[in-house]
Design a binder for these strands. Structure first.
Lengths: 235, 235
DNA sequence: ATATGACCAGAATCGTTAAATTAGTCATAT
DNA sequence: ATATGACTAATTTAACGATTCTGGTCATAT
């Protein structure tokens, strides 16, 4: 259904072209012909890969979310304190900040997301709003990765406020008065460390790693599942 | 200049009416006739108090900023830990959250602020964007009211991110998933306490109170100055 | 088989004009 | 003196067809 043609390389090139143009000009002002030209192919060829412009956008969305997840796991793995919740969250912010597309999604940028946002059944609502789900925080807490005396719901929300602020503030206040993004993220991470990390840091880190492994398996399983389903419906 | 008529009670009533209508319907959709009707007077009478619709709005803005400041000082005074920076900031959030008008300003709500925002010489730019000025943080730091090893510029920005998030998030994510505002503010305050308060809490609190007294004198002086100027130009 | 781009129907945009609204004034009334 | 609201000039909105644009298709070419 979603892909009628087997040509992964071109598939990616289309999405690359779309990502470039949409981040720059927005969904509404980016035409399918524009994307075709940017990808160096004909318009018809695009419809060999995607059923509609909306489907293309959703394909892009899925790819970017996937890349964002992958990048997050990568950052965690590379981080010596990767198991601590403060590091986990820090890496959320880094991954978020690295992706223009994810930043646009997170701030509900109507200029970029355009009319897709208005659709009733758009994918954003399903995904749930925030970067940090409070269910995940609760899991981390019962695993002992964060202090017992914090309210996971409240802290998850505060973290989402900060993530939202990170990608939104330069539209609001004079960008010249904003500190370096790295410094902001570092400051937030230290604050979260003081707020959330239990006394026993090594135990917390181990617990955190375990939960992340579990989450990762879950995510990868779900991705595999989705791919399987797509193949079936193609047949 | 700004007030041709001496009738403080009616002056206030006009601003009350304007505040109600503007917060509800926005600046553009609130007409001067609407305000007159709501205040129970004629349209002409409004022009005995204000030179123009814009001037009326600026009068409202000034009044609300003044009330916000007053309320903030009031909250600090009532707070047993009022001198601590975390309490100071907590009371900023409470005062901000109590005022629909200030919240709208802070989130740059174009629906409410309307065409006034587009004006070249609008008052917002002069006021500087944030609730927390990093110069103030630096003052507090050199007075010993906050820890020496934090970057005042970065922390001021983080605090503004949180203030922005507090008044913005319910436009962004499903409001039902947002915790109680009081709980959020409490959580933020505790986080800031862990991050900013020095070892010696009583000394910090005293130092904080001294800076606030200084700031308050400064603000009240400035207000008196402004009133003086207005009287002069009226003559 | 695979890819192209001319083509089409429907949607969005534009230019124009008419109608409605509104900020601000001022002759009149109190 | 003070306040009113009918009035006006100017702006905003609504209406409208004409025109362009764009998502999607498909006969044709490779």
């Amino acid at each position: 259904m979603s892909t009628q043609t087997d040509n992964p390389e071109r598939h990616e090139r289309i999405l690359d072209a779309a990502a470039n143009l949409i981040v720059h000009y927005g969904f509404d002002k980016t035409t399918v012909s524009d994307i075709a030209r940017e990808a160096g192919i004909s318009k018809g060829a695009i419809y060999l890969h995607f059923d509609s412009k909306d489907a293309l956008f959703e394909g892009l969305l899925m790819r970017e979310v996937g890349r964002y997840n992958t990048r997050w796991f990568e950052l965690i793995e590379a981080d010596p304190e990767g198991g601590l919740f403060s590091s986990l969250y820090k890496n959320v912010l880094i991954a978020l900040n690295e992706s223009d597309f994810m930043s646009a999604i997170f701030r509900r940028d109507t200029r970029i997301l355009g009319s897709y946002l208005r659709k009733e059944d758009n994918l954003f609502k399903q995904m749930g709003g925030g970067a940090i789900r409070h269910e995940f925080m609760a899991m981390m807490q019962s695993a002992g990765a964060i202090r017992q005396d914090v309210d996971p719901q409240v802290m998850a929300h505060i973290m989402n406020m900060l993530a939202f602020g990170l990608v939104s503030m330069d539209d609001i206040i004079e960008p010249t008065t904003i500190p370096e993004t790295d410094a902001i993220i570092e400051g937030i991470a230290e604050m979260m460390d003081r707020m959330l990390t239990p006394e026993d840091r090594v135990a917390a880190s181990e617990a955190g790693k375990a939960v992340v492994r579990q989450l990762r398996a879950q995510v990868e399983n779900q991705v595999a599942q989705t791919n399987e389903n797509n193949k079936e419906t193609d047949a």
